[in-house]
Design a protein around this nucleic acid. Sequence first.
RNA 1: GCCCGGGUAGCCCAACCGGUAGAGGCAGGGGACUUAAAAUCCCCCGAGUGUGGGUUCGAAUCCCACCCCGGGUACCA
Length: 889
Amino acid sequence: MAAEENLYQPADLESRWQKHWEQQGTFAMGDADSRPKYYVLEMFPYPSGRLHMGHVRNYSIGDVLARFKRARGCAVLHPMGWDAFGLPAENAAIQRGVHPAVWTRSNIEAMRDQLKRLGLSYDWSREVATCDPDYYRWEQDIFLDMLDRGLAYKKGGLLNWCDSCQTTLANEQVENGLCWRCSTTVVQREMEQWYLRITDYAQELLEGLSSLPGWPAAVTSQQETWIGRSVGASIQFELVDAGSIPGVDGPLEVFTTRPDTLYGCTFMSLAPEHPWTRKLAEGTDQQDAVFAFVDRMGTTEKADRVDEKTEKEGVFLGRHAVNPVTGRPIPIYTANFVLADYGTGAVMAVPAHDQRDFEFADKYEIDKVVVIQPDGDALEPAVMTEAWTGQGVLVGSGDHDGLDNEAGKQAIVDELVAKGCGAASVNYRIRDWGISRQRYWGSPIPVIYCDGCGMVPVPRDQLPVVLPEDVEPDGEGGSPLIRHEAFWKVSCPTCGGEARRETDTFDTFMESSWYFLRYCSPHFLGGMVDPQMARSYMPVDQYIGGIEHAVMHLLYARFYTKVLRDLGHLEVDEPFANLLCQGMVCHETYRDEQGWLYPTEIRFETNTEVGPDGKERAVRKAFHKESGHEVTIGRVEKMGKSKHNTVDPEMLMQRYGADTARLFCLFASPPTKDLDWSDSGVEGCYRFLTRVWRLVTGRAAELAGAGSPEGRELSEDAVGLRRRTHQTIARVTDDIERRMQLNTAIAATMELLNNIVAFERDSNGKPRPLEDDDRAVLLEAVQMLLRLLSPFAPHITDELWQALGHDGLLEDEAWPESSADVASSATMSLVIQVKGKKRGVLEVAVDASEEEIKAAALAMPNVQKFVGDAPPRFVKYIPGRLVTIVPGG
RNA sequence: GCCCGGGUAGCCCAACCGGUAGAGGCAGGGGACUUAAAAUCCCCCGAGUGUGGGUUCGAAUCCCACCCCGGGUACCA
């Protein structure tokens, strides 16, 4: 018997269907299509060579949506490509002697193969790889446009430098003072590099966030914080020795959000890096102290400098400025807590009303002047223990005394404007995007430096500037392009003289800032995107990826979109209408004295033990497979190499097949929440598919051609199954379309299977013989089960669909509609509550009137017992749910 | 510190607008099948929702205070 059974063997059938889809072009998308478009996009991967479980989860979510929308009649654009430039390729080259291009391309091959084996419904004809000159040439082209418009510029200054990556980093790419990629402490270096004027778009980037209700608040609020808009005033402070200080011309400018406290400003603080810090001190008797302090700050790590716990310290510069409203001279200091790159790098210090200034003034015995009195309190500088930063009424502020401090802000700004030494002003924390990288494996920056002509853009007809591949990264520091004479030695496009090419390459976030556009017309030769295709497909309707890019990729892509709109390449303001950030994939950790262990090295034992409460409970222990010793089961953490708590998707696919891998990633938790890996949970999903398989293959022959259940006189059980079938259609549809709650959609299909099995079994749990009517109902239920399951587990469902005698693909079947008539039942059960406590259940016809229901509820013996004789205070009917009664008396 | 999430059976999770706390899976127990085991099938057990208050006829859900976990951010003038 067993030998004849048709076993579920995913490996074989999955590759068969994948080939079939590819040959049929099932997921390819033509451009002339009258159906409504739906663009579903998952963040494209860096081609590391192997998928990890986070990828599987990310792409499975997107694939369900793509397949669902296709079934709902949309023209679905669902592309995939490769974020192919970047450091790991160079590191691999240095460590293993493989060229980055070779390494990257073979990784792409391997990962594309893995993606195909997952059965993801991509239109592979749109695949792009960012390291392809046909791709990055358009980035170079747009860069030249930005250069023309002044949106790209080069400047020197202090930059974030990662010594491990041997390159500069943009501000967004420094996380807690560490490199986002390798967690090395970032240091400051004086360098020249290219910038994009993202600050020109700061206000629009901020305002645009409110047009994105489909984005998680966690992301929009992070971007809002990053952009950091502050409203206040810029104020000029004249210097006491104005005009006689070499290198210092004009007043000292500050930005403040508290112009209302200006009368209380008793000193100023400059960042050690402020261009005037040394100049002001030069020649005064403070010179040596100041220079020593600035030097010391220069060698202090930024992370330590900006730690709030670091004591405030500084040095008097030996100079004074004039408070523009009081006319009093105030000392100028340099202070460690003043940031060079925020505002003007100089602050007006109001010790009575700013905690930092308060501490600083305490330490250096600087006057505190109270200019805001809180309601019902009289602040006295001598006895204050901390600054008053709250609201109050202005005092000691000349004509403004008595004003509420909020009104005082405007009043004092008005005074400054009248005096010509200040104005209302808005400041942003975001700074321009530094895009030069001193690395090889990236797109060349298309400019040339000529001694005679200066910086010269590479003429358009010479694009792309192709990254030479006859280069061997050696880890010597600096881009190897510097040592590649054939690359950098060029003649000047303007004068024909000897010139040098730029040898830095673009930040790889440049490529990922517009790849979603290239997918719209991946082979277009006239520009980065065919405007007509951009019009057809943009914006992305649903973008799916990790939240780690909240202020890197997602901000840059929004910026790029606005720039490209202004350059006439597209018409949308925002690239991604809806964003879903999937949760992390987590796994238990295991360790022994030697360190972390991989799950594959562990064997488990479960025993029941009697706990201290006398109850029996299961106790799970972990043992090292090889040595047999017990190992510690640690906490559940994000899967990662460092903790060894990874599960390889490849193993999973080989053992259970792609359908199970997909199903588990979607079933174990809702898409936006973290997913705890569980081997037994995977087994459960496999078991579910096996049950579906056995059910359908066991009944296929007799079900094929069983006909429709419509218009038949059905048994009660059959009506019940039809009802569950149609209820399930409605639930799964709603769970995917409106709620994006894929775990409960799958649970609903599991429930339907349970109902189907209960229907087709006899009292001994064996398949029972079926009448015609039952066969029709069963066929409908089974077909709906397959159709509903197909976005999640596309291979097995196609196979079983065929087994039921269908020639076409399930992918070509429309999504089913739930019939409200069939889904509803004739009666409903209502809970009857008395004073909020459940006292009975009433079975009534669904069309019973409210009066009938209330009367029936009150008539129930158990209800009467609790209601008593007095007329009830009130009786309320919650339709379809319950009747609640409050007794009178 | 501040800003987001999250705390529901032994575990992962449901409960959508305030209306019967349980859909689904795992684990556990029992039974059927088997020489036996695995697989399979059937049945069963199980929490009162982190804590303390409040609103309500009724709270996992709303309000207040607090605890724990995860993420982000942190001298931003």
